[in-house]
Amino acid sequence: MILPAIVGIALFQYYPVIVAAVHSLQSFDPFTNEAVGFTGLDNYSRMFTNEGFQSALRNTVLYVMSSMLIEIPLSLALAVFIDQHLPGTRFVRVSVIATLAASETVAAIVWAQMYNPDQGLFNGLLSVLGVPPQDFLNSGSEALISVVLMSSWKNIGIPTLIFLTGLQAIPRDYYEAAAIDGASGFRQFRSITLPLLRGSGTVVVFMATLQSARIFVPIVLMTQGGPDGATRNLVFYSYEQTFQFNSRGVGSAAAIFMLLFLGVIIAVQFKLLGRRYDS
C-alpha cells in the first residue's frame, strides 16, 4: 500500500539529495556540464571563502528570525481573533485563506509594484502621513524586511489555521472554570491558551523555519538578490551558482550545506520545544 509513496519519496526527495551530495564533490566541464572528476572538498572551500556565500548565510539567518518574529505572533493573534466569532471574523478568515490561494508569483509581482519607490502604493500612503518616500526593495537596509513582509503575508494562512485548530481543540470547560475562579481574559490566555497551544506552536515554528529559509520566488522576482547582495539567501546563492554562473559543484555544495544547516536548526528546535511539548 505504501510502496508508491516510498518510491515517490525516494525518487523525488532522497535521490536529488544524493545527486547533489555527489555533485558537490565533483568538478564539471563548463561546456558539457558533465562531471570530469572528484575534487574532494574544493567546492566547499571555494564556497566558504566566497563573500557572497557569507552574506547569503547571514541573510538566511535574518530571514528565519524576522519571519518567525512576524509570522508566529501575527498568526496567533489572527487565530485568536477568528476563534472569537466577533463581527468581522468571517472577513479575516476569508482574507487569511485567500493568501493561501494566491499565486506566489503573482503576489510577488504585485508587491513589487506596491513597493515601487516612484509610483508604488506604499509610498503613496506614506506621503499622506507625511513620511518621506522610501526605497524599499532598492535600499540595502529595507530590502530584506520588505521581502520578509511579502513572504509573511503569503505564508500567514497555514500557521493561522494550525493555531485555530489548536484553539478549537481546547475544551471550553477550562475557560469557564477559570472565569468562575475570577481569572481575567489575559490570565486565561496566558495560563490556558498558550500552554495548550504548545503543540501547535512547535509545528508552526518548524514550518516557519523551513519556509523562511527557503524563500526563493519573491527574491527572484523582486530583488534578484540585491541590492548589493542584501536579499541573497542560501537558496538563491545555490541557484545563482548553478544556473547563472554555471558552477554546478559550488551550487550543489551550497544546497548540501543548507540541508545540513537546516537540519541542525530543526534538531535544536526539536530538542528545546519538543521536550517541553512531550512533558
Binding site: 526605497d135 532598492n138 534578484q224 540585491g226 541590492p227 548589493d228 547563472q244 554562473f245 554555471n246
Partner: peptide, 21 residues
Amino acid sequence: VGWNEYYAAINPAVKDIALGA
C-alpha cells in the same frame, strides 16, 4: 565564452551602482 557569467555578474552590479554603491 563566459558571457553568461559576465552578464549575470555585471547586471546586478550596475543596478547596485544605480542605487548608490
